[in-house]
Design a protein around this nucleic acid. Structure first.
Lengths: 212, 212
DNA sequence: TGAAAAATATGAGTTTTCTCATATAAACCT
DNA sequence: AGGTTTATATGAGAAAACTCATATTTTTCA
């Protein structure tokens, strides 16, 4: 029932503590500002981590793809209040109640080593993305994003979400898509999808977000 | 000799392994691309972490203020090559050779807990800064930066460095300083320093980078 | 099924930020 | 001390990105 890549992280048996929970699309897995009381393994589905500014604006901080983990910040006591996590499609999670097992985890070198490595990798990814975003205009970042997220030669994503993720306005994102189409690099297909006509141009202008 | 806040992180005695090393201003503590073979505690001085793009452009990723730690990424094996670290003034470091002690560290729950917490806090700070930077124009970010780094009512920093840190061109930074002066919020004093004339305006427009 | 909400789309005008050119002053080296 | 590099400073024009307005289509959900 609980996948081995989860149970293997620990040097003790977590099955007595683990709870299985499912979320529908658009359901909040963590509400912004709540105390988080569990360590959460996302084993199926995708979710996004977001933060609402006083501004009212919303930033997508990250996309979570299963399998992954969150709630480490709360486990470590590094932050009281969580950011929001919302299910992008049907999600399956395994919850480990912190109250019951945090003392076990703190003594578990196997788990702690795993967590350190997990945190390091996450930090590297974030830093790389951040540095990249600051130094290149949207065309370049978008080229990269298209290459990473296209299915073969077909790109098909929600503009609204992508705009938030790339940290630009919806309007500007559309503008840059239009530019890429005009340059004959993309072709606007039926309504929502684009076809990549010129992979090499796209690759040339793309910034490699994972080259750190 | 080695401060207790360093020795206290470990459950064993590190003194037999620790090396003491000093760096002059502008000396490279870590060269970009090298293998890093030590865990480094910066116990005195300030340093900056940077990354050179294929672009040629340089991003300041972070400022290190003592006391802090770096080299964790290499310890965890999360990255082969380090980013550059350069001393901004005289720096004193304690080096722990990874080859000799990494197996000890991996079994040391005290150290591992410390490292997890350290990584979490770093990640939170980075995320907060990142989200902030994406959503506010420079005036707001700069207002905040001025408040954080001013000495009383006197602000005095190198524009070149600040421009890099805030991820904008030198030209634009100067422009925004001029705007703040024109609005009677700052006053341009002798050559390099500015006096804050209107704290409350500055505070109003400032984005709080540490409100996560 | 029908109304409301969300996503797509495009135009026009503005703000933010960048590039490049150029000049002067300060800091650094040997 | 004198030459080199680095930091400060400013102008002009262009590119990048944003806001607001507005229209259409698609999705959601009661």
């Amino acid at each position: 029932m609980i996948p081995s890549y989860v149970t293997n992280i620990f040097s003790f048996d977590i099955t007595p503590y683990a709870k299985w929970k499912e979320f529908r699309k658009n359901e909040l897995i963590c509400r912004e500002g709540d105390d988080l009381s569990d360590l959460v393994f996302l084993i199926k589905g995708n979710a996004k981590l977001f933060l609402t500014h006083e501004n009212g604006k919303v930033t997508i901080i990250d996309f979570f793809k299963s399998p992954t983990l969150f709630g480490e910040m709360e486990f470590m006591g590094a932050q009281k209040f969580t950011n929001g996590v919302i299910a992008l499609n049907k999600c399956v999670c395994i919850l480990l109640p912190l109250r019951e097992i945090s003392h076990l985890l703190r003594d578990d070198t196997k788990f702690l080593n795993y967590l350190c490595l997990f945190l390091c990798r996450k930090a590297l990814r974030n830093t790389s993305n951040y540095a990249t975003n600051q130094n290149y205009p949207l065309v370049n970042r978008l080229a990269n994003f298209i290459l990473l997220s296209a299915d073969g030669e077909i790109y098909n994503r929600k503009h609204t979400e992508v705009a938030e993720y790339l940290g630009v306005s919806y309007r500007h994102l559309l503008h840059v898509f239009a530019v890429l189409c005009e340059a004959d690099i993309l072709q606007h297909m039926d309504k929502k999808s684009y076809r990549i006509k010129d992979f090499s141009s796209l690759a040339t202008m793309a910034v490699n977000e994972n080259s750190l």
